[in-house]
Simulated assay, not measured.
Amino acid sequence: MKYIFYIILFLSFSIFAQESFEAKFIKKIDLHADTLISIDNFGTSYYIKDDVFYKKTNTNTISYNNLQLGTLHSANAFNTLKINLFYKDFNTVIILDNRLAEIFKIDFNTLSNYKNVLHVSTGHDNTIWIFNQDLQKLELFDYKSKTTRAQTAPVQSTVIDLKSNYNFCWLLTENYLYTYNYFGSLINKRPNLGYTALIESNDNIILKKENNLFYIKKDNDATIPITTSNLLINQFFVTNETLYIYTDKTLQQYQLKPN
């Protein structure tokens, strides 16, 4: 029985080792951007160019600019009705609607409970996830009531990236990849094996290591490589099963297919 058990175990690892995703090329388009933010199911692209935030559809391009706040550090368009822009130098977040009209401004410098924010991402309802650099904690912040709904235990290593959806938040640090639910409870913790960026798609995670991408299915710890034909990956984004890679002013579109 023990001999049979080891044979089955060996075959299982062999099958797992061969599993991968192939990125099948579909098309490429020109895109002049500094930072690709996201692309939705309708092909609308969101990006930053010269500290201006753009929304580009097949027929129209609109933009938002705030010269008073200087450098636009990051943006998140997971909820296109409540897009958040983070101006790190001024410790300020701007919330935009789908027409890129300003609907809310959060100046963390003026709060009675001052917060020194390092990273920002989308939350549910009227919340955003923020990483409080002074406390080294991740917080779910309600920007209308100006209160913290949830917070995590302190994180001991340097934060590299932060992504979220309505249910979960992923925090990539130099040492670990943490997964939290919207109550701020830690539900998973994986070692960081050299990853430098992450994105999420339908609770699945895609990680970048050097010039390679890796896929982690939800409710599964298996890390699956994505074959990208040695394409230089400056930035990347996934919508459902479509992979977008931005490099050298070109946005290339691929279909993810399991091998």
Rank of each mutant, 00 (worst) to 15 (best):
L9G: 12
S12E: 00
F13Y: 06
I15G: 01
A17N: 06
F21S: 05
E22G: 04
I29H: 03
I29E: 00
I29V: 13
D30W: 02
L31D: 00
L31I: 07
T35D: 08
T35M: 14
G43H: 04
T44V: 08
Y46G: 12
Y46H: 10
Y47H: 02
K49P: 00
D50G: 10
D50I: 09
F53I: 15
F53K: 14
Y54D: 08
K55T: 07
K56T: 11
T57E: 06
T57K: 09
T61E: 01
I62L: 11
S63I: 08
Y64N: 08
Y64S: 05
N66Y: 06
L69V: 07
H73A: 15
S74H: 04
S74P: 04
A75Q: 00
A77F: 02
A77T: 03
A77D: 12
F78A: 14
L81M: 14
K82C: 08
I83W: 08
L85I: 14
L85D: 02
L85R: 12
F86S: 06
F86E: 06
Y87S: 11
Y87F: 14
D89W: 00
F90I: 15
V93K: 01
V93R: 01
V93T: 04
I94G: 02
N98F: 09
L100N: 07
L100D: 02
L100R: 07
A101P: 04
I103Y: 02
I103M: 05
F104C: 05
F108S: 10
F108G: 05
N116R: 09
H119P: 00
T122G: 01
G123D: 08
T127V: 14
I128Y: 01
F131V: 12
Q133E: 10
Q133Y: 11
D134W: 03
L135R: 13
K137Q: 08
E139T: 02
L140D: 03
L140I: 12
F141P: 06
D142L: 05
Y143S: 12
K146Q: 06
K146M: 13
K146E: 15
T147K: 13
A150I: 06
T152E: 04
A153I: 07
A153N: 09
V155S: 04
T158R: 01
D161G: 03
D161W: 03
K163H: 11
S164G: 05
Y166C: 03
Y166G: 06
Y166A: 13
N167A: 15
L171H: 02
L171E: 08
T173V: 10
N175I: 11
L177Q: 07
Y180P: 01
Y182I: 13
L186C: 03
N188I: 12
N188Q: 15
K189Y: 04
R190T: 14
R190L: 11
P191R: 08
L193C: 12
G194S: 11
T196M: 09
N202V: 14
N204D: 15
L207V: 12
K208D: 00
N212R: 15
L213A: 14
Y215A: 13
I216C: 10
K217Q: 12
K218F: 01
D219F: 04
N220Y: 05
A222S: 12
A222L: 13
A222T: 15
I224H: 01
I224E: 02
I226A: 06
Q235L: 10
V238Q: 10
T239P: 02
I245A: 11
Y246G: 10
D248N: 15
Q252L: 07
Q253Y: 03
Q253R: 13
Q253G: 03
Q255V: 15
K257W: 02
N259C: 08
